[in-house]
Design a protein around this nucleic acid. Structure first.
Lengths: 119, 119
DNA sequence: TTGATAGTGAACCATATGGTTCACTGTAAA
DNA sequence: TTTACAGTGAACCATATGGTTCACTATCAA
């Protein structure tokens, strides 16, 4: 049905790494340079740069280089899509589980009824 | 703070593949065997088995083998965790963006004020 | 002008991922 | 009792991922 598969792919993939989720939390607090982040997560500049690139690719982060420092900020609200997907399916899920609950309950009730009528 | 990093890793990783998200949608409709799914997604049995294993590992799907067919159902509600993480950060996000909006607005207002006083 | 600093890119490495084929087991059906 | 079917596991393949080092560029500061 939907067509943003690839976007969702990259978004979820970006979120599937502890370090990157950490970076997002960090940036939730305040903007930071690559160096800041590399230090905080005990990693090479190059390594952190890669993570930031992945996040940027996924639109979760935006960066701007001023002079020689690149500042990273939380990006446009791409989490929305991921949230929407999950939410949609969570509801589906719940519906099914609720249905299941109901069936089970009905069975229990019948069970009781049968037990009573069998007496 | 939180400690379920690994769980989140596997959940998000599981969701980062189109086929697997497709399987989840499929199972949202009705339970299915590996063969069913393999056909529907034009893939080897072995390949689909792997996907199902990943989903099962992530707790998004449960399976039960009866006779020679393994039936896959939506699993316990592991989406909750992922949803919770995203929701939490979405709010953080929004807060920051709202703050930004406010700052911009204030700047605009000041701008106007200055313009007026400069006249 | 000379260092130090911040980031970048290429090359490399080990491991993971998404897929296949092939050989096998266990179950169902004729 | 054969034969067909559903699934499994091992081996393999190409590509992606998460990380490193090293050599380089650009910029800031003394």
């Amino acid at each position: 049905m939907v067509h943003y598969q690839t976007r969702l792919d990259t978004t979820f993939a970006a979120l599937s790494d502890v370090t990157r989720r950490g970076v997002l939390e960090q940036l939730g607090g305040s903007d930071a340079s690559i160096t800041d982040l590399a230090q905080r997560f005990d990693m090479t500049l190059t390594g952190m740069k890669k993570h930031v690139s992945v996040l940027e690719q996924a639109g979760l982060v935006t960066t701007e280089k001023i002079g020689r420092v690149r500042t990273c900020k939380l990006g446009p609200r791409q989490l929305e899509e991921a949230a929407a997907w999950i939410e949609q399916h969570r509801q589906l899920w719940s519906a099914r589980f609720d249905a299941l609950d109901e069936i089970v309950e009905n069975l229990n009730r019948k069970e009781k009824g049968n037990a009573r009528s069998r007496k």
